[in-house]
Simulated assay, not measured.
Amino acid sequence: MPTHPRPPFDPEAEAALTALAEPMPAVTPGAIPVLRQAALPVVSDETLLAAGVTRRDVTVPGHHGAELVASVIARSGHTGTGPGIYHIHGGGMIAGERMIGVSQILPWIVEHDAVAVTVDYRLAPEFPDPCPVEDCYAGLVWTAEHAAELGIDPGRLIIAGASAGGGLAAGTALLARDRKGPALIGQVLICPMLDDRDRTVSSTQYEDAGTWVRESNRTGWAALLGDRWGTDEVSVYAAPARASDLEGLPPAFIDCGSAEVFRDEDVAYANALWNSGVQAELHVWPGGYHGFDMLAPDSAIARAAIAARNGWVARTLDAPSPGTSGR
């Protein structure tokens, strides 16, 4: 693929990236243990309590009977039923834990009296595909089956995730459609990791600039898929960009930066949803690198991105007649 000049980073967001104590190196297979030890944006119980929110941990079944830990997060004193959020954390398929990225959904819990369930799916390469997406689907089924005791209205359930979590959320939504599983009224895909084939222009533009670069992305996909990576043997549930039929999926919100590896696959997925008759809202934030909204939350583009995402969630959760089109 020919070399393309890359769109520059937003100056205000780039300042936050430059201010990091250490640059973010590319993740190689040998560096996966180092990535797992790195400081990641985990939301603490103190932060939850300051927002008027509490959490409790539960054990839920995963793929083939595995036991997974999940956290149920709700406003203190939550009673009755409210919207449900099924959250899947990021980490490139190879790192992370259930409280990473919860800051992105915390306003939805507080403002809409929603109850969130966030699950610790098992990570590659120790647990390659289909374990991660099947774990996530099993957790979604558990959430729907226990909606009444969780205080969730099963008719107002959305799925959300960022990066690898966004890709797993998209794959889980496909599984739910194809298995006639839990009904979802929306999917929030934040800079999702969707395509293992490494063929896009944006992949080549961010070989060594930004946060999650091309080599890191290759490492994540190789860990997940092994020898199947890039071949015709990859499931659409593992790499949703491969799906040709997206009809009947719930409406989607998709956002990413113009200056990140995932840009082109995210735009293509939104277009594929529209081509299948599914409503989708797409935002490509100019100069945004991967995770800019979390690294530079006070930048103008981060504030705009967060407001747009929160607005879509509010409209979706408050819709009078939620549902999806039939197949």
Rank of each mutant, 00 (worst) to 15 (best):
T3E: 14
D10V: 03
D10P: 07
D10N: 15
E12W: 00
E12K: 05
E12G: 03
A15W: 00
A16Q: 04
T18M: 09
A21F: 01
P29H: 06
A31S: 15
Q37M: 12
A38Y: 03
T47E: 15
L49E: 15
A50G: 11
A50E: 15
V58W: 03
G65R: 05
V69R: 14
G77T: 10
Y86K: 00
Y86S: 01
Y86G: 00
G96R: 01
E97D: 14
I100E: 12
G101V: 14
S103W: 13
Q104V: 13
I105K: 09
W108H: 15
I109F: 05
I109L: 07
V110E: 09
E111A: 15
H112P: 09
V115K: 00
T118L: 03
V119G: 07
D120L: 10
L123H: 03
D129H: 12
P130I: 02
V133N: 12
Y137W: 11
G139V: 11
L140Q: 09
E145R: 14
D153C: 08
G155T: 12
I159M: 13
G161M: 12
R177Y: 07
G181F: 11
P182D: 09
G186T: 05
I190F: 00
D195I: 04
R197Q: 08
S203M: 08
N217Q: 10
T219C: 13
A222I: 02
L224Q: 00
L224H: 02
A241G: 07
D245H: 10
G248F: 08
F253N: 12
I254G: 01
C256L: 05
R263L: 09
D264E: 03
N275P: 00
S276G: 11
A280F: 07
H283Q: 09
Y289A: 12
G291C: 09
M294L: 07
L295H: 06
L295N: 02
P297N: 04
P297G: 04
S299I: 02
I301V: 02
A305W: 05
A308Q: 14
A308C: 07
R309S: 06
G311V: 11
V313Y: 05
A314G: 11
L317E: 07
A319M: 10
G326I: 02
